[in-house]
Design a protein around this nucleic acid. Structure first.
Length: 216
DNA sequence: ATCCCGAGGG
DNA sequence: CCCTCTGGAT
């Protein structure tokens, strides 16, 4: 697929899925520390759930130093509704401690540094660089991005890191921080893993999978 | 019942 | 590659 076609697909999705209030709230973090912690907590859960606990969490622990000395049981109680609360509490406290000890209390700016933090994988690290620093170091590849990228024809690879490289070559930087959001939305609303609703899909005429199914 | 807007570990 | 960790949405 050529770059012009690929970019026009994202433009259509961008028109179809404007940010709703909950997501705007999520991205309207007050500082990189909050975005980092919120992104760790967001794994396998919804933004709506996460947004409900942000005020209590950050009024109790406004900075890495405070979170580093938090009682794990207190943190678990606050973040309970996010799911995986035991490991997530351990991870965000561990991250706060590491920020204090290794990074002078400041959230690092590179993928390599960020992924050394507990609970921070490549996807989370990319979300942070994209939205906290607007440096667009890379593209956050989660299961939806992975599935749809191959299906639509943005890439032929299945390995997340290879997919990321392919997408970075295919799209200009201005899309890097948005691809994740757009493909997730489309992946949940229309192009689901189980039953993709191609007749509702506004980009089907450019979708490799749809074209190959022989319906046009 | 089943599936996840992941990461870590075996 | 496989498993586990959780609550919530559907």
């Amino acid at each position: 697929m050529n770059a012009i076609t690929a970019e026009s697909i994202l433009e259509e999705l961008d028109h179809q899925y404007p940010c709703n209030q909950d997501e705007m709230n999520f991205l309207k973090f007050r500082n990189p520390f909050e975005l980092l912690i919120m992104t760790i907590l967001s794994a396998q859960t919804t933004d709506v759930t996460i947004n409900g606990l942000r005020d209590e969490l950050f009024s109790a622990y406004p900075n890495p130093a405070a979170l580093a000395r938090a009682d794990p049981l207190d943190v678990e109680r606050i973040i309970h509704s996010a799911g995986f609360y035991h490991s997530k509490a351990k991870n965000i406290i561990g991250t706060a401690k590491m920020l204090e000890e290794n990074f002078g209390g400041v959230v690092p700016r590179t993928i390599e540094e960020l992924t050394t933090l507990p609970g921070v994988g490549r996807k989370t690290a990319n979300i942070v660089t994209n939205h906290a620093f607007h440096e667009a170091c890379g593209i956050a590849v989660d299961t939806h991005v992975r599935r749809l990228s191959k299906k639509i024809g943005f890439t032929q690879n299945t390995d997340p890191e290879k997919i990321e490289k392919d997408l970075m070559k295919l799209f200009p930087e201005k899309w890097w921080s948005k691809i994740n959001y757009l493909l997730i939305r489309h992946g949940r609303a229309v192009c689901t893993a189980k039953k993709p609703d191609c007749m509702k899909c506004i980009i089907r005429h450019n979708c490799q999978s749809y074209i190959n199914s022989g319906e046009e």
